[in-house]
Write a protein that binds this DNA or RNA. Sequence first.
DNA 1: CGCCAATGGCTCGCAGACATACCTTTGGAG
DNA 2: CTCCAAAGGTATGTCTGCGAGCCATTGGCG
Lengths: 232, 232
Amino acid sequence: MVEHAQEALFRPVRAGNAFEETVERLMQSIRLGVVAPGERLPSERELATRLGVSRVTVREAIRTLQENNYVESRRGRYGGTFVNQEIPKSAPGKEFGDIHDALTLRKVLETGAAEAAAGRSLGPSERRGLRTRLEEASTASLAEYRRKDSRLHLAIAEATGSASLTAAVAEARMRANELLDHIPLLEPNLAHSNAQHERIITSILDGDPASARQAMAEHLDGTASLLRGFLV
Amino acid sequence: MVEHAQEALFRPVRAGNAFEETVERLMQSIRLGVVAPGERLPSERELATRLGVSRVTVREAIRTLQENNYVESRRGRYGGTFVNQEIPKSAPGKEFGDIHDALTLRKVLETGAAEAAAGRSLGPSERRGLRTRLEEASTASLAEYRRKDSRLHLAIAEATGSASLTAAVAEARMRANELLDHIPLLEPNLAHSNAQHERIITSILDGDPASARQAMAEHLDGTASLLRGFLV
DNA sequence: CGCCAATGGCTCGCAGACATACCTTTGGAG
DNA sequence: CTCCAAAGGTATGTCTGCGAGCCATTGGCG
């Protein structure tokens, strides 16, 4: 029996209970900017259906987000649950033992996604979407940068046409961002990042997989080394 | 709000109930050859702990595997649950709509893993492990090839030192294998595969990331095009 | 030969999650 | 001004899964 492979296959079947998982998902969609401040989450009933949990569980999760000032709910038609303008910083802490784990997975998924996206023939709406996200990220302020950045990277993953790859990228980004939240974001980094984004998107739109991969790798290595520098 | 990214983030929080997930994991470990025919699974109590489910649930899952002739259980000390010599073929069917999804994810993860593994400085036991798996795969019969092949690929993922990457590769391989099970495995393919394995492992042991990635990409493209040819 | 440790086999009560139904609030349409 | 659709808020009974404990079986060790 292969001893080490067991660790991967016999890991826990579920990360937490239904409630915790639901909170996690909703927080992800907010932190990654999929639902921006001021915007409305899908209705409780719709979330329950899409997340595959009961409405009770969705409500408990939303109540937790309310208590932590992530969202506010309004009743009545045209009501709903809205993302607050200011959302709390993520709690510090975390085990630093799995930095390698998180960064390795992120690099594999994101460089792979960039390459795969460049290798596909993209439709007009996809090309437009990528340009829009690029533009949004490049004009973002420091405060909203992390969110716009994530939206751009998620758009790249979506451009692969693989839903499970997109989900995996979202997950990996979330883990990486939890670490990145502990280091300062500076204007020079931001400018550098934008230049790299430009290269990545251009390569994808030009259909140059090797170049897209290369550009993404350099982009990620930048933040990765920044992170290691701050934490070690 | 980014509409498409929602699909990834608001997907169901759990793939199935605890029982179904547990059956899935145990079947994976058997089908991927992590626990070979004749070998013993960990005890029910240990599985319950590691999988994070109750022993009752583990037992129900094992009973399902028994009923489908995957395993047999023996009581008493030095008893346990043993994998049968002949395990059933996986049921056909499946949606073919997500072939692209499955193959895209697999390629991204496995080429990334090969590259990452080649980029690390591996310890003696890891190097030995890789050579052993390579040897096992190269001398495998047609019947046991798929299993030995998976073990080799999992060993490569493990060599990245990232547990979550290993888990993701296992998952992706499982999905791809479900598709590959429907096409015949021929001697010439096998010989070709072994040559490619040799290149991959050599590149990893030599610490040549680019070459490892390249070799893995060609290896996977071979089976991918074979699959598309048979199914389209 | 007898003990006993480790395994699978079994049962019962509790807590979490669920489906379902109904209530309350709100603001636009008619 | 009234109505009502759509959203959040609440309550209840059911069922799944869990924890914990005990039983039955087996084979090695003393």
